[in-house]
Design a protein around this nucleic acid. Structure first.
Lengths: 112, 112
DNA sequence: CAATTATACATAACTTTCTTATGTATTTGT
DNA sequence: ACAAATACATAAGAAAGTTATGTATAATTG
């Protein structure tokens, strides 16, 4: 089952920031693949959502970029800066608290 | 802390369907208050989101309504029908699975 | 007892954040 | 050779909220 996209909505930036915190520098396509792998295909980031989101995070001053040439192809790597690292922690913590509240509200049993 | 609204986005219908499954019939304002209470104010449903959402659920054939007059004021009660009850269970289960996936992806420790 | 706050509904304009579609181009696998 | 995968980007449209506004009645409080 791929989650209905309305659930993903609002969590994309959090996912990206966490992935970058864990893996150091990453490029867009890599992010889509890594998340797909880690979730057994249950969460699939679309490029139409991801690239604008990366641009937005960069514009917010959370990411640094470096471009690399792989053969004739261009690859754009993103990396968290200090502000981005702090934001990443903040976002994940906020989401964790949200999870807790929702688990209580919806009476969801903790996953063993 | 009130959760940034982007997180709530996509969960409103799930919350409403679950509340109705637990409490039987409820009216809109009551829903806002009940959710606020249960979450210690951390989730506050706005009327601008809730009423259209209730109308949509009704249009989807998941809810039955009855109007009651309290003094001179009108109150519109909503109740799950059979289809709505099934949908409520489905939505909560889907959200529970999503939570699990996100907990893994974001490496969030289970709450106590 | 006048004024504020709470109760109770509804809708419209706007914003955010996705999806879907489209475009370009290179590299790899069959 | 052709298809699929890699790799970026943007634009049109949809979904689902927020904020603002509107209408009323009931309860509370200085």
């Amino acid at each position: 089952m791929i989650y209905s996209s309305e659930l993903i909505k609002g969590t994309l930036k959090t996912i990206v920031l966490k992935m970058l915190r864990d893996h150091g520098r990453m490029y867009g396509y890599e992010l889509t693949q890594r998340v797909k792998e880690l979730t057994s295909g249950k969460i699939q980031l679309t490029e139409g959502a991801l690239y604008p989101s990366l641009h937005a995070l960069e514009a917010e001053g959370l990411l640094e970029t470096e471009t690399e040439h792989i053969g004739k192809r261009v690859r754009k790597y993103y990396r968290l800066n200090k502000k981005g690292t702090a934001k990443s922690e903040e976002k994940v913590n906020e989401f964790a608290a949200f999870l807790d509240t929702m688990r209580f509200l919806l009476d969801i049993k903790p996953a063993h």
